[in-house]
Simulated scan of single mutants.
Amino acid sequence: MFGQLGYLISESFRGWKQHRTVILPSLLTIFLCSLLLTSSFTALGVSFKLISVEKSLYVVEAFLSEDVPEDSIPVIKTRLEHTRHVESVSFVSADSALADFRNHFSADMLDLVEGNPIPAFFRVSLSKEARNPLDLSEVRHAIAEESYFEEVQAPIKWASRIASWKFKMVFWPICVSILLLITLSLIICNSVRLSLMSRKLLVENMKYAGGSYLFIEFPFVLEGAAQGFVGSSAAILLLGLMIKSVVKMFPIVATGVEYFLIVALFTVFLETILAGYFSFRTVRSFLFEKKGEQD
Rank of each mutant, 00 (worst) to 15 (best):
G240M: 10
Y213N: 12
V257S: 01
V113S: 08
L126P: 00
A120N: 05
S185T: 12
L196V: 05
D95S: 11
E61W: 00
N205W: 03
F122G: 02
K166H: 03
A234S: 11
L238I: 14
V203L: 14
G228K: 02
W172Q: 02
Y58M: 09
A43E: 00
D135N: 10
F229S: 06
L270P: 01
A264G: 13
Y259I: 04
A107S: 12
T38S: 10
F121Q: 06
L50T: 08
T282F: 06
L8S: 14
L27M: 10
H85D: 13
V221S: 02
G210W: 10
M206L: 13
K290I: 03
N132I: 07
E258A: 10
V170L: 15
S125T: 06
L261C: 02
F48W: 13
S245F: 07
A43S: 11
K244T: 12
L238D: 02
T272N: 01
L80S: 06
Q153E: 10
E151G: 01
V253A: 08
A226M: 13
E66N: 10
I9E: 01
F105C: 00
Q4K: 15
C189Q: 11
A235R: 03
F167C: 00
L5P: 02
H104Y: 06
K157T: 14
I23T: 15
I178Q: 03
E138P: 00
F101L: 09
M249K: 03
G256V: 08
E54P: 07
S198I: 07
S147R: 15
G210L: 07
P119L: 01
L186G: 12
E150T: 07
M197F: 14
A120S: 15
L287Q: 12
L35Y: 05
R123L: 08
I252N: 11
S52L: 07
S65T: 09
L136H: 01
G3Y: 14
S160A: 11
V60C: 07
R281H: 02
I51R: 10
D135V: 02
S232P: 14
D135I: 04
P251I: 05
V152K: 03
F269I: 09
Y148F: 12
S198T: 13
S34K: 04
S26R: 04
Y277D: 03
L181F: 14
A163E: 13
G3D: 15
P25F: 08
A130I: 07
V253K: 03
L36T: 09
I236H: 09
L265C: 10
V89C: 04
T255I: 12
S127K: 11
G231R: 07
S245I: 03
T38Y: 01
F149H: 04
S65K: 15
A94D: 07
E66Y: 10
I188N: 10
C33M: 15
W158C: 00
L222M: 09
L110M: 08
F250H: 11
I30A: 01
T255M: 05
N116M: 01
L110G: 06
R84H: 08
